[in-house]
């Protein structure tokens, strides 16, 4: 996750409290999704950004995960996401995301 985004996630968390933040990812594949999820939960694994060594433990999902899809109006999901859902390896993304969440 780029350093600017890490800084913003940290600022929002400080402002609103970790329990009020959900991070929604749109990364194109599993590994990148997992790294971003790890950054906002366990801390920046690359130790480069503001979240290095900071365990925010935020709730984090990828937009293609079923938990999120259920929350979205099907017509909007069809218009905005369904094409990418066809393209992405959704199972791989879900596995990576679950693997990170299991570590919390």
């Amino acid at each position: 996750m780029d350093l600017e985004n890490q800084r913003r996630v940290l600022e929002f968390t400080n402002q609103y409290g970790a329990e009020n933040i959900v991070v929604l990812l749109g990364a194109a594949e599993g590994e990148a999704s997992g790294l971003a999820a790890e950054t906002v939960t366990l801390g920046d694994p690359t130790f480069a950004g503001p979240l290095a060594g900071v365990q925010l433990g935020l709730t984090v999902y990828h937009v293609c995960e079923p938990e999120i899809k259920e929350e979205i109006d099907p017509a909007v999901y069809d218009e905005q996401i369904s094409m990418m859902e066809m393209v992405l390896d959704v199972d791989d993304i879900c596995n990576e995301m679950n693997a990170i969440r299991e570590q919390l």
Binding site: A28, L35, M83, M86, V87
Partner: peptide, 17 residues
């Protein structure tokens, strides 16, 4: 570098559309 296969991702998007 975790950025995937960029042209392939584009082709898949074009095909999916």
């Amino acid at each position: 570098a975790g950025a995937g296969d960029v042209p392939e991702a584009n082709y898949k998007m074009i095909a999916a559309l």
